Amino acid sequence: MPEFLEPNRVDLSLSDGIPTITLAGVEVSAGDGWSVLNRATLLVVDGPGDEGFLIRRLEGNGTDLTPAGWDDAVSDRGYVTVVAGRTRIVAPVVS
């Protein structure tokens, strides 16, 4: 079952133009079988089996938590890097 992560456990950034999701206090399995769904209000990081995370993009006041250029970078690259502890995953974007 996907785990909902509060914004204080997630950092959404662009690192050299690469969209990156850094998860705090989370351990994940190896890098195979992961994907990301990027929507205006929510990010779904879907892993193998029951692993996965739901990440909201908007604060209560409607402020987007993603950095400027996030959607264009996700679209242009076609993947998002997900970092959880020592594990780095390159997750393709699905629609």
Rank of each mutant, 00 (worst) to 15 (best):
V83M: 03
R39M: 08
A40S: 13
G69D: 02
D76E: 15
S13Y: 08
E6I: 11
S75G: 04
L54P: 01
E6L: 11
A68C: 04
G52E: 03
T87E: 13
G85R: 12
V26F: 05
A91G: 02
T22K: 13
V74H: 00
T66P: 01
N38I: 09
A68H: 08
V36Q: 00
N38P: 02
D72C: 01
F53A: 02
G60R: 12
I89Y: 03
V36W: 00
L54G: 05
T81A: 06
G17F: 08
T66Y: 00
V10N: 06
G69F: 07
A40T: 13
S95W: 07
N61K: 11
G17K: 09
L42Y: 03
P19C: 06
Y79G: 01
A73H: 01
L23K: 04
P67C: 12
N8S: 15
E6R: 12
S13A: 15
T20D: 04
E59V: 05
A24Y: 15
D11N: 15
W70M: 06
D46A: 15
I21R: 01
R56I: 08
V93A: 02
L14G: 09
G62L: 13
E51V: 10
R9M: 08
G25P: 10
S95C: 08
M1W: 06
L14Q: 09
R9Q: 15
V80H: 01
E51W: 08
D46R: 13
G60D: 15
R86A: 15
P7M: 07
L12P: 04
V94N: 00
G25K: 12
E3D: 09
A84L: 06
R39C: 03
W70N: 03
V90T: 13
P7V: 11
G31A: 15
V45W: 02
S35H: 11
V82T: 03
T41K: 09
I89S: 04
R9A: 14
T81L: 05
G60L: 15
